[in-house]
Structure formats: C-alpha cells, structure tokens
Simulated assay, not measured.
Amino acid sequence: MDFLTMLKAIILGLVEGLTEFAPVSSTGHMVIVDGMWLKSEQFLGKYVANTFKIVIQLGSILAVIILFRNRFIELLGLNFGRKTADAAGATSGKKLKLTHVLVGLLPAGVFGLLFEDFIDEHLFSVQTVLIGLVIGAVLMIVADRLRPAKPKTESVDQITYKQALSIGLFQCLSLWPGFSRSGSTISGGVLLGMSHRAAADFTFIMAVPIMAGASTLSLLKNWEYFTLEDLPFFIAGFVSAFVFAIISIRFFLKLINKIKLVPFAIYRIVLAAIIYIVYF
C-alpha cells in the first residue's frame, strides 16, 4: 500500500483512539470521517472496510487492558489474594466480581448476535450515525438532569447485580452506530445512582470482552474478503488506535466527574448539525 493509504489508516486509528471511551461514539466518528473524506470502501471493499472499523477497536482494548491491568488480574483471580491499585485510582478486587461483568455483557451480547447482519447491512452510514448522535445526546442530557443529588454508588466496587444488568440493557443502544457505548452505559449508570466515574470504570471494563467478541465475529464472518495486502492497513490502524486510546483514557478519567455528560452531549448535537449541513 502507498503512503497515502497508510496515512488514512493512521487517521482512522487516531479517530478511534481519541473517541472510543468518550461518550461521543468512536464508530460514528469513523463512519463520518471515512464516509465523507477517506473513502476506505473504494480500496478495501465494503465488508473489509466495515470490519476494519470494528477490528481497529482492538488497539483501544489493549490500551484498557494495560491501564486497568491490576483490575483484570484480580477479576480473573490471578493476584492470589493481593490487593493492588489500578488506573481507576482505587483499591481493586474489593467487591466487583467477574460475574458482575458477565451480567452486564449478557444483553448486548444476545442482541448483537441476533441483529449483527442487519447492523452491518443497514446502520453503517452517515445518516444513521447522525440519528444516533442526536438521540444519544438527548439521553445524556436527561441522565445529567435526573441523576440523584448524591450518588449511592461512588465506586465501581459497590455496583450491584441489578445495576450491572440494567447498564447492560442500556449498552444495547450502542449497537446503533453513533449512539456510543460509553455514552449509553455511563448515562444508564448515572440514572441508576452511580457516580460518573464509577459508571465510566464499569464501562471500560465491560468494553474489553464485548469489543474483542465483536471484532472476532466480524473477522470470521468476512474472512473470505481479506487479502495480505490489507494487513498493513489494519496494523497501522491498530497501532494508531492504541497510542491515542492511552492518551484519551487517562484524560477522560480525570475529566468525567468534573464536567459530567452535558458538554459531550452539546458537542454531539453541534457535530450532527454541521455534518448534516455539509453532507446533505
């Protein structure tokens, strides 16, 4: 592949890494940037291009695993009883269990399997992303306005199974590109009485298995369309997403409890308006 093509992969990785864990929809941003300017379908084909937008998230997953490594070690029972501090800034392993994560993953996992073909075929477009951006923004504003004055769940270690399942149901909304996984789950967590930081921590932890599963399924489904020539494009996007996700996660975790969700919602609405004017 030539330099310009590789640069496109790096740009898409940058977009993915910077937006994956902010409540603005990384997939939505990639669809918009790619659909309006980069046009990866023209040299990758539709199915490989759509798979790239999913598989590139593996770079962001690796960033989460590294930053939350102590948390994952404890969830998997590999710390042998030792308590350590993770990227969330709290002592891990106190109450959060792997079963909480599995309960949170169940709804979106089931819906994702049932509607994967429909999503791939009909929802990866600029028009559908704009709808997701606006409706997701409304949910975020509502969550901030209706949240309890004092959260009853300050830390992710205090999460209940009922909260985990309810957040999992909110995560189903993120199957619509543009809605945002973190936007839907953090909004759901806040409405359920969690602090913004606790909801964000649980969102990041849940993201690893569900994003890994989605990437694996997409690769297996579209494997016949790949060629060795596509590999450098995927590697460049993966590395770019990883680097910028590391930066984004650290920044977002320091920011979310201070500014809440409304500023991100306003950004989404403004972005949707600008894209609508430019694109249509």
Rank of each mutant, 00 (worst) to 15 (best):
L106W: 08
R145M: 15
G112Q: 07
Y267K: 06
P232L: 03
A22E: 03
E116T: 12
D2W: 10
F280L: 13
T91A: 09
L220I: 13
L14K: 06
H196K: 15
D230Y: 10
I61S: 05
S240M: 06
L191K: 08
I275H: 02
I210G: 00
L139V: 09
I65Y: 11
S155N: 13
P177T: 14
R82W: 09
G136C: 14
Q127Y: 13
K95S: 13
L146K: 15
A272P: 00
G136Q: 09
P177E: 15
R82C: 02
L133T: 04
N79I: 02
A198E: 02
L12R: 03
L14W: 10
A63L: 02
M211N: 07
T128S: 10
S40M: 07
G17P: 05
L96I: 01
A87F: 04
F118A: 14
T19K: 06
T51R: 03
V48Y: 00
N79L: 13
I269M: 06
R181G: 04
G168L: 10
S25R: 01
A273V: 13
L62E: 06
P232W: 11
A214Q: 01
L173F: 13
L38Y: 04
F244T: 03
T91P: 09
S184D: 06
A9K: 00
L7Q: 11
F233T: 03
G109D: 04
P263I: 15
L58K: 01
I61Q: 03
P209D: 05
F252H: 05
M6Q: 10
I205C: 08
Q163L: 12
K53S: 08
M1A: 13
S240R: 02
W223C: 14
G28N: 05
H100W: 05
W37Q: 15
T153M: 04
K221A: 12
M1C: 11
G89V: 06
V15S: 03
V101Q: 04
I141K: 09
L130K: 05
P151T: 15
L173W: 04
E16I: 03
L75H: 06
V208L: 06
G237M: 05
L105C: 08
I135S: 06
D117F: 07
I135R: 01
D157C: 11
